[in-house]
Computed example of a mutant assay.
Amino acid sequence: MNTKPIVNDFLNTKEKKLAFFQNLVLIAVADKYVDDAESDFLLTIGEQLGLTQDDTLPIADNLSTLAFIVPEQGLHKHLELQTLIMMVLQDGKVEEREYKLCLEYTRGIGYTQEILDNLIRWLTVG
């Protein structure tokens, strides 16, 4: 299934791409360690979004001051939550701090903890 056209509909500006990437980085660094799988996932997403190192360097340089940027559209919120969960699952375990950040994002987009837990189970089994 090719989701690229759908994603391109939502991430149609550099600002939206950077916001999406920033949210992923925040989840990746939540446990204070970015392992190889998480790093590879970030690189892959960055490449797919067409982001350069110059684009993403300000994110890395300002981690302590960054917060989630919540998208406006419903389907965009859902797709982004799924991608955040995929980031959490890259190392094969759900760390407590990563889970709490995902829950913060989940509540920020108006979803419940039950939806988050169901998506984690679905993506773990799927």
Rank of each mutant, 00 (worst) to 15 (best):
D54R: 10
Y33C: 02
V70D: 05
P58D: 09
F10Y: 13
T44E: 12
L11K: 01
L18E: 05
D117L: 07
E72M: 11
K4N: 15
T56F: 00
K100Q: 15
E114I: 07
K16G: 02
I6D: 09
K4I: 12
H78I: 08
T56M: 05
N2V: 10
E15L: 12
A19W: 01
L42I: 01
N2Y: 09
P71F: 00
M1L: 15
K32D: 10
I115E: 02
K100R: 14
A60P: 04
L103V: 07
V34R: 02
R107K: 14
E72H: 13
G50L: 07
Y99P: 00
K100N: 14
T56C: 06
H76M: 07
P58V: 08
D55Y: 04
V25A: 06
K14M: 11
D61Y: 10
V88Q: 03
E96H: 08
T65N: 15
K93F: 08
T65S: 15
K32S: 11
R97E: 14
T3V: 10
D9Q: 14
E38W: 00
Q113W: 07
R107P: 03
F68H: 02
E114Y: 08
L11G: 03
K16Q: 06
C102Y: 03
Y111G: 01
V125R: 15
D36W: 02
D9W: 08
D117Y: 06
G110C: 07
M86L: 14
M86Y: 02
Q113K: 15
N2I: 11
V94D: 03
T3S: 12
N62H: 14
N118C: 11
L51T: 02
R97S: 14
R107H: 12
G74P: 05
F68V: 04
R121M: 11
E47G: 02
H78W: 11
A30R: 03
M1V: 13
R121K: 15
C102R: 01
T124I: 06
G110Y: 07
N2C: 09
P5S: 12
I115V: 11
G46K: 06
K4F: 12
L89F: 03
D9H: 14
Y105W: 08
D31C: 06
P71H: 05
T3F: 14
V70M: 06
R107N: 12
T124S: 15
A19Q: 09
L119Y: 01
I69P: 02
E80H: 01
I59E: 05
L119V: 05
T112Q: 06
G126E: 09
L26I: 01
L42M: 00
T83M: 13
D61P: 00
K4A: 13
M1E: 15
N62Y: 11
L24F: 05
K32A: 08
V34K: 00
K93S: 12
S39Q: 15
D54F: 03
L89I: 00
L116M: 12
M86V: 06
V25F: 02
K77S: 10
L57Y: 05
L101Y: 04
